[in-house]
């Protein structure tokens, strides 16, 4: 865990953020803040997860909303059927969406580039139709979730979920960071750069791609599991929202895809801006803002914010 000084700093920061989050729940009662930060945390997990396949491995997934929604609906269905507690629901969503990711991984055998992206988008549409017709989880009209009135340690269920989400977010960042610097991470980078050459250099490309898609799916499922309980109502339109998929792509692109911190920066920046704009300007306009930011970054700084900083540091060294 502590291989060098960077590791120590990383874990101290993680611990500090978690403590700060707990501190917030003990001092602030206004639920708006939790709703806003929860949205940013959820977007962060999605962005970090998308980046494992999109940034590290080089396969663009347009169907992120499907993983998120299936994660949410797995939790809804198991809650209704067995009434399992939250940790089990999260684990179950991770397992189901991980399997979904594994299936998508096999698509990479035949589909690359834009064809893979289209296939993932198509998968999302198929799954949305499925949920739209599944009465047990409310079908197209959606389903209300009852949440407990009282919880231990926190003054509301919202605050508890907020802490759960914060811990999950930090966990997903830690996984992504570890992967980025690992032998597997270097194998994934080789696949991204040239799959044929990677295979000839001894990289088991299929196995690594399956690891990548499975991990991505599981993490997106984890992001989706607490969502129905946080908003207490979920329907296919909100769960399969294209905006979820667009955000998952835009945030890593804006932050920078090659480095683990890129999607985190992107999610904090774009997610933060969205929350501010929703309150100060309008909730419709924030979609436009993301679009403009994405276009600007893709044309002017394709390596994202991380790339800009790296370029700047290199210039300073000279």
């Amino acid at each position: 865990m502590f291989r060098n000084r960077g590791d120590v700093v990383f874990w101290i920061v993680l611990g500090a953020v978690l403590l700060a989050g707990f501190g917030v729940t003990q001092t602030i009662a206004n639920e708006y803040y939790y709703t806003a930060i929860y949205a940013i945390l959820q977007a962060t997990i999605m962005a970090v997860a998308w980046n494992i396949l999109g940034g590290f491995t080089g396969y663009v997934n347009f169907g992120s909303a499907a993983f998120f929604a299936i994660g949410a609906y797995t939790a809804v269905a198991l809650d209704k059927w067995l009434g399992l507690p939250m940790p089990f629901l999260i684990a179950a969503s991770a397992a189901v969406c991980g399997l979904m990711g594994l299936g998508v991984g096999y698509l990479t055998l035949r589909l690359k580039g834009v064809y893979f992206a289209i296939a993932t988008l198509a998968m999302a549409i198929v799954l949305e139709t499925l949920i739209n017709n599944w009465d047990y989880v409310g079908a197209a009209k959606g389903v209300y979730i009852l949440t407990p009135e009282k919880v231990p340690f926190f003054s509301s269920y919202i605050q508890l979920l907020f802490m759960v989400m914060l811990a999950l977010t930090l966990g997903s960042i830690a996984i992504s960071r570890y992967l980025n610097a690992s032998r597997i991470g270097r194998g994934l980078a080789a696949i991204r750069d040239d799959e044929v050459a990677a295979e000839c250099a001894g990289v088991p490309t299929l196995r690594l791609k399956l690891i990548s898609t499975t991990l991505m799916g599981a993490m997106m499922g984890v992001a989706g599991a607490p969502y129905p309980f946080f908003v207490t109502f979920v329907d296919p339109i909100s769960a399969f929202n294209l905006f979820v998929a667009v955000n998952s792509i835009a945030m890593p692109m804006i932050g920078g895809t090659a480095h683990w911190i890129g999607p985190v920066i992107g999610a904090l920046l774009v997610g933060g801006a969205q929350e501010v704009i929703t309150v100060t300007v309008s909730s419709e306009l924030n979609v436009l803002i993301v679009g403009i930011m994405l276009v600007l970054f893709i044309t002017l700084a394709p390596q994202g914010i991380v790339g800009l900083v790296q370029k700047w540091m290199k210039r300073r060294k000279r």
Partner: peptide, 23 residues
């Protein structure tokens, strides 16, 4: 390969790390 296929996001040294760590 006839047409060189370097791992373009990597330095020359990192290119060699891949076969050393895998093959």
């Amino acid at each position: 390969f006839q047409i060189p296929k370097p791992f373009r996001s990597m330095t020359v040294l990192e290119n060699l790390r891949v076969p050393l760590e895998y093959a």
